[in-house]
Amino acid sequence: MDELLASADPWEQWSAWGIVFGILVGVVIVVSIVAAVVLAILGRRHTWPKALSTRTKWPFRVTLLLLALIISTVVAPIGEDWITGIIHFFVILLIISVTWLAAQLFLFFLDSGARRYNIMEKDDASARKIQTQMQIVRRLVIATLVVFAVGAILMTFDGVRALGASVLASAGVASIVAGLAAQSVLGNLFAGVQLAFNEAIRVGDVVVVEGEWGRINEITLSYVVMQVWDQRTLVLPCTYFTSTPFENWTKLGRELLGTVYFDLDWRIDVDEMRAELDRILDDTDLWDGKSKGIAVTDASGGVLQVRVTVSAADSSALWDLRVLVREKIAAWVRREAPEGLPARRILAERPLVSGREDPASA
């Protein structure tokens, strides 16, 4: 068969190739239609077939089409001179399409699991942990697939395979040089993986970093994105969270305890202040109903330091609750207990002359 094709003229070779390719394209179309029908039938009872079809439809079709091109070119070669180059080109495209298909399949399974842990609807520690780990695993697997695809493409070239043998022979020196050159990059990479599985921080956690508090929005293999409370974005390397102390307000749960301090005069009625705090908390939904209290924590400088303690379900509600309590208590002191306003007292004494009171000052 090959000898006959080789001895045929170019028109016959192209005709034979076209016939084989047409047959294979028909097979590809039939397979694509069958797969689409099967997913459509399954989609009547489940939601995942539609998502699977959306993600894998085009990479699956492109992969089948490239297989058809390769098979038709091998079975019915167009020309002896440049058939090797054509097949090589199609093989490179096939490696890319297979990588594309594998990545889409992986993302489909990952997103299917992520929908069970939607932190916007189910805001708990386990959901945030799974979301964080999925973000890191997603990037790690995609990066690994790309690296393997690039390596597979390079290994299709004879010169690269020969180079690979010499590189392996000097792998010891190369690994040392590469390790020194990429020390910071690899450090961030390992730190990103460590953050994903040691649960020091998770997506959605509220942290205090560099004097700023905000919410963790994204954790990558090299950096962490934090949304600061005033809508600024703070980007930090992953190694920061493995080498620098920081506060995680939601490590053990989202319920938080906050304080508000007042410097008041000694004449303030603390019991009345407690009653006013009860009235304020009863009128707001920001308080979670778990903890409240007022205590005199210091008495120096002519004033009493009064600490108000309240609790809330999360950091955002706690901030608003502290602001509300501060405003309401300050207004209550001005309106109902003005004697509690801080005042500076000056004691004026009559001067003495030779141990006696100066008559001129009387």
Results as ranks from 00 to 15, higher is better:
Glu3Phe: 07
Ala6Val: 10
Ala8His: 05
Asp9Phe: 04
Glu12Gly: 01
Trp17Asp: 08
Phe21Tyr: 09
Leu24Glu: 02
Ile29Phe: 07
Val31Phe: 09
Val31Gln: 13
Ser32Trp: 01
Ser32Ala: 12
Ala36Asn: 08
Ile41Phe: 10
Leu42Cys: 14
Pro49Leu: 03
Pro59Cys: 05
Arg61Glu: 02
Arg61Asp: 01
Ile71Asp: 04
Val75Lys: 06
Asp81His: 04
Ile83Asp: 15
Val91Asp: 07
Leu94Ala: 14
Ile96Leu: 14
Thr99Gln: 06
Ala102Gly: 11
Leu107Asn: 13
Gly113Ser: 06
Arg116Trp: 03
Met120Ile: 12
Ser126Leu: 14
Arg128Thr: 01
Leu140Gln: 10
Ala143Lys: 03
Thr156Gln: 11
Gly159Val: 06
Ala162Glu: 12
Leu163Ile: 08
Ser166Val: 11
Ala169Cys: 01
Val173Gln: 12
Ile176His: 09
Val177Leu: 15
Ala182Phe: 11
Leu186Thr: 11
Phe190Thr: 13
Ala191Trp: 04
Val193Arg: 02
Val193Trp: 05
Ala196Gly: 15
Asn198Pro: 00
Val209Ser: 05
Glu210Ala: 13
Glu218Gln: 14
Ile219Leu: 13
Val225Ser: 10
Gln227Leu: 15
Arg232Glu: 15
Cys238Val: 08
Gly253Ser: 06
Gly258Thr: 03
Thr259Pro: 00
Thr259Phe: 09
Met273Leu: 15
Asp282Thr: 03
Trp287Glu: 06
Ser291Ile: 08
Gly302Trp: 02
Val303Arg: 11
Ser311Gln: 10
Leu318Ala: 13
Asp320Leu: 07
Asp320Tyr: 00
Val325Trp: 04
Arg326Trp: 02
Ala330Glu: 15
Ala331Gln: 13
Ser354His: 13
Ala360Pro: 01
